[in-house]
Amino acid sequence: MWIIFSLLGAVSAAIVVILSKAGLKNTESSLGFAIQSVLILVVAWTVVTVRGNFSDLTSIDRKAWIFLIVAGIFTALSSLFTFRALKLGNASLVTALERLSLVFSVIMAVIFLKEKITWQVVIGAALMLGGAVLIAISEKSTDNS
Rank of each mutant, 00 (worst) to 15 (best):
N90A: 14
K87P: 08
Q36I: 06
Q36L: 14
A91M: 04
G72Q: 04
S101Q: 09
G72N: 10
S78A: 12
I73N: 04
F67P: 03
A76K: 05
L39S: 12
V103H: 05
S59Q: 05
V106C: 05
L86T: 02
L68Q: 06
A71H: 03
V106F: 02
G52N: 01
A96W: 03
L86I: 03
S59H: 05
N53W: 06
K63V: 13
V103E: 10
T75L: 15
R99I: 02
L86E: 08
T95Q: 11
G89Q: 04
A91T: 03
F104T: 07
V43C: 02
S105T: 15
T75F: 05
E98A: 15
L97K: 05
I60G: 05
V103I: 06
L77K: 00
R62L: 14
R99T: 11
F67C: 10
S79I: 07
T58D: 00
T82N: 11
I35N: 05
G89W: 06
V43Y: 11
A109I: 04
F54Y: 09
S55L: 05
S55G: 10
F67A: 13
V50S: 06
L100T: 11
V48L: 10
Q36G: 15
T82E: 10
T49Y: 01
L80V: 03
F104Y: 14
F33L: 14
A34F: 04
V48M: 09
G72R: 01
R51S: 15
R51H: 11
D56Y: 07
L80H: 12
F67M: 13
E98H: 13
V50N: 04
N53A: 10
A109K: 07
F81C: 04
L88P: 03
F74G: 08
A96N: 06
L41Q: 07
R84H: 13
I60M: 12
S59T: 12
T58F: 13
V42A: 08
K63S: 12
L39Q: 07
L93P: 01
I66N: 01
I69A: 14
M108D: 01
I107T: 12
S79F: 03
V70Y: 01
T49W: 05
T49F: 01
L88T: 00
T95S: 15
V43Q: 05
W65K: 06
D61Q: 04
E98S: 15
D56F: 01
N90D: 15
V42D: 04
I66G: 02
R62A: 13
A76S: 15
L68V: 02
A91D: 04
T75Q: 11
S78R: 10
